[in-house]
């Protein structure tokens, strides 16, 4: 019993955990909003932004969760192991505080909780471009590259 109590006390002594700001500080001097504001209301910003993004397709980067992750979280630790929200170490930026205050979040059930490491194939082509990635840039589109469009006049002649 006493031992349990002691463990509990030690837990209390640990105090507020230091959130790991090093990755973010290396990239920018200042967060998108003042630090105090972010500490208090980051969830409001995320909540508003998520609906705007999913429902209206507004994809500004300022309050985007992806950008939070890109800036605040290093994909791997120094020993090369992956940093995840659910890790026992609780050194994921979000986990360090959320574990302490006991607020469960389900963001990372769906969202990636660390920046992407291995790049996927980079698709560069715009909707409006008339060349596809198979044809070399600047050249005229090849006939076989484009869908065949019927023309009634021509067809009338050929058939």
């Amino acid at each position: 019993m006493l031992a349990l109590f002691a463990i509990a006390l030690v837990g209390c002594d640990a105090g507020v955990p230091k959130s790991n700001l090093a990755p973010a500080k290396a990239k920018a001097a200042q967060c998108v909003e003042p630090t105090a504001e972010m500490r208090k209301n980051h969830m409001q910003y995320l909540l508003v932004h998520r609906d705007k993004t999913v429902i209206e397709g507004i994809r500004t980067t300022k309050h985007s969760l992806n950008e939070c992750i890109n800036c605040h979280i290093a994909p791997t630790r120094e020993d090369g192991s992956a940093v995840h929200y659910a890790d026992e170490k609780k050194d994921h930026f979000c986990a360090s505080c959320h574990t302490y205050v006991g607020v469960k979040l389900d963001c990372f059930q769906c969202h990636a909780d660390r920046p992407q490491v291995a790049g996927t194939i980079n698709y560069q082509h715009k909707l409006s471009s008339n060349t596809y990635h198979l044809s070399a840039k600047g050249t005229q589109p090849n006939a076989s590259d484009l869908l065949w469009l019927g023309n009634s006049q021509n067809q009338g002649v050929t058939q």
């Binding site: 065949w148 019927g150 021509n154």
Partner: peptide, 9 residues
């Protein structure tokens, strides 16, 4: 698609 004759781009 092989029939290129009537293809109009």
């Amino acid at each position: 698609g092989g029939l290129a004759s009537g293809v109009i781009l």
